[in-house]
Simulated assay, not measured.
Amino acid sequence: MASETEKTHALLQSCSTESLLSSLGLGLFCTVADRLLQFPIIQQNAWLRALSDNSVHCVIGMWSWAIVIGIRKKTDFGEIILAGFLASFIDIDHFLLSGSMSLKAALSLPRRPFLHCSTVIPTVVLTLKFTMHFFKLKDSWCFLPWMLFISWTSHHIRDGIRHGLWICPFGKTSPLPFWLYVIITSSLPHICSFVMYFTGTRQMMSSKHGIHIDV
């Protein structure tokens, strides 16, 4: 098992000056990007609005995962791109629920689509972890449940400033204050890192990302 010294060293890396500055940058990006999306030129064009909104989801997902792992190798960019894809992929359920590839139909649904239910996140993450453990994929793809958690959670939190959080079967919350969205989003990578370090996991401590801890 990892020693307390090794765990402390790994944890300090997640709270480095570089990591904290990256989180501040993420919070600034969220603030600026969502303000820019309110410009009439974007709001009056359905396609431009949808693509811009989805792109911001993608960038937040990528930025968040980059904070978690740091960028030490070229191969890390593959994970970061995957995190962005997962963060933006959720919106495909708009088209699935509408049963059409029409953007107008996807944006005028009678109810929120299923991937926008926040209860789905822990359900899918835990199912994925158990599945990976069963098929012995926990070493090669150990990062995936955590990446999915961050990518999907950041998407839901951002959507929450407009629609609130939909928590099945309890209903939905009121819209989140913008300042709370920014704080949660910029803090989420560090929260995830803390959980990974102190729940017996070793994902973030692998030599893949420059932190080697034997287990």
Rank of each mutant, 00 (worst) to 15 (best):
S22T: 01
S22R: 09
G25Q: 06
G25T: 01
L26F: 04
G27T: 00
L28G: 09
F29D: 02
F29W: 04
F29I: 00
C30W: 15
C30R: 11
T31E: 13
A33S: 05
D34H: 12
L36F: 10
L36G: 04
L37G: 09
I42P: 01
I42A: 04
Q43I: 03
Q44H: 05
N45Q: 02
N45Y: 02
A46E: 07
A46G: 00
W47F: 08
L48W: 06
R49A: 08
L51N: 07
S52K: 08
S52R: 07
D53R: 12
D53L: 10
D53I: 12
N54M: 07
S55D: 03
S55K: 00
H57G: 06
G61C: 11
M62T: 04
W63G: 08
S64M: 03
W65H: 01
A66G: 03
V68R: 04
I69A: 09
G70C: 01
G70R: 02
I71M: 01
K73W: 08
D76T: 05
I80E: 03
I80W: 01
L82S: 06
A83L: 04
A87F: 06
I90V: 12
D91I: 05
I92W: 06
I92Q: 01
L96F: 13
L97W: 06
L97Y: 08
G99T: 10
S100Y: 10
S100P: 07
L103G: 01
K104D: 11
A105K: 13
S108H: 15
L109Q: 02
P110D: 02
R111V: 13
P113K: 07
P113E: 01
L115S: 11
H116M: 14
H116K: 12
C117D: 13
C117A: 09
C117Q: 13
T119H: 14
I121A: 07
T123W: 14
T127W: 15
L128R: 04
L128N: 02
K129V: 00
M132T: 05
F135E: 12
K136D: 13
K136M: 11
K136S: 14
K138S: 12
D139I: 15
C142V: 14
P145H: 12
W146Y: 14
W146P: 06
F149N: 13
S151A: 15
S151T: 03
W152C: 11
W152H: 13
W152M: 13
T153I: 03
T153Q: 10
S154N: 11
S154E: 06
H155I: 04
D159C: 10
G160L: 07
R162F: 13
R162C: 05
G164K: 03
L165Q: 00
